[in-house]
Amino acid sequence: MSPDSDTDETGIHCRLDELLDQRGMTLTRLSEKVGISIVNLSVLKNDRARAIRYSTLRAICQALDCEVGDLLVVRPSDAQR
């Protein structure tokens, strides 16, 4: 299953790549700051995560100085487009 089909299935898109780019931060640096493995962050970044703990979400948002809505967005379904 491709990341695009996962996003279509859940309708949720993680903007981690965009936020990291805007802040000039690498995935490695974020991993160090929040204590989450690069592999797990990569799963989130590529829209393959099925769930996320609130504590993880909070740690990422604190490290990136953003709100949850900046990180996770709902994409309209095909029927709404």
Score class of each variant (00 low, 15 high):
residue 1 M to W: 09
residue 4 D to M: 11
residue 5 S to L: 11
residue 5 S to Q: 14
residue 6 D to H: 00
residue 7 T to R: 10
residue 7 T to G: 02
residue 9 E to W: 06
residue 9 E to M: 11
residue 9 E to I: 12
residue 10 T to R: 06
residue 10 T to C: 04
residue 11 G to V: 04
residue 12 I to N: 03
residue 14 C to E: 00
residue 14 C to G: 04
residue 16 L to E: 03
residue 17 D to Y: 00
residue 18 E to S: 08
residue 18 E to V: 08
residue 19 L to Y: 00
residue 20 L to C: 01
residue 21 D to W: 06
residue 22 Q to G: 05
residue 25 M to V: 05
residue 26 T to M: 02
residue 26 T to R: 01
residue 27 L to F: 02
residue 27 L to H: 00
residue 27 L to Y: 02
residue 28 T to C: 08
residue 29 R to L: 12
residue 31 S to R: 02
residue 31 S to E: 01
residue 31 S to F: 03
residue 33 K to E: 08
residue 34 V to F: 04
residue 35 G to T: 02
residue 36 I to G: 01
residue 36 I to E: 00
residue 36 I to C: 05
residue 37 S to E: 04
residue 37 S to K: 08
residue 39 V to A: 12
residue 44 L to P: 03
residue 44 L to I: 11
residue 44 L to E: 04
residue 45 K to D: 09
residue 45 K to N: 13
residue 46 N to R: 13
residue 46 N to P: 01
residue 46 N to L: 09
residue 47 D to M: 02
residue 48 R to G: 06
residue 49 A to S: 15
residue 49 A to M: 05
residue 50 R to F: 08
residue 52 I to Q: 10
residue 54 Y to H: 12
residue 55 S to M: 15
residue 55 S to I: 10
residue 56 T to M: 06
residue 60 I to C: 04
residue 60 I to N: 00
residue 61 C to A: 12
residue 63 A to S: 14
residue 67 E to P: 03
residue 67 E to A: 15
residue 68 V to N: 01
residue 68 V to A: 13
residue 69 G to K: 13
residue 70 D to K: 05
residue 70 D to T: 09
residue 71 L to K: 07
residue 73 V to I: 13
residue 74 V to E: 12
residue 75 R to F: 09
residue 78 D to N: 07
residue 79 A to I: 15
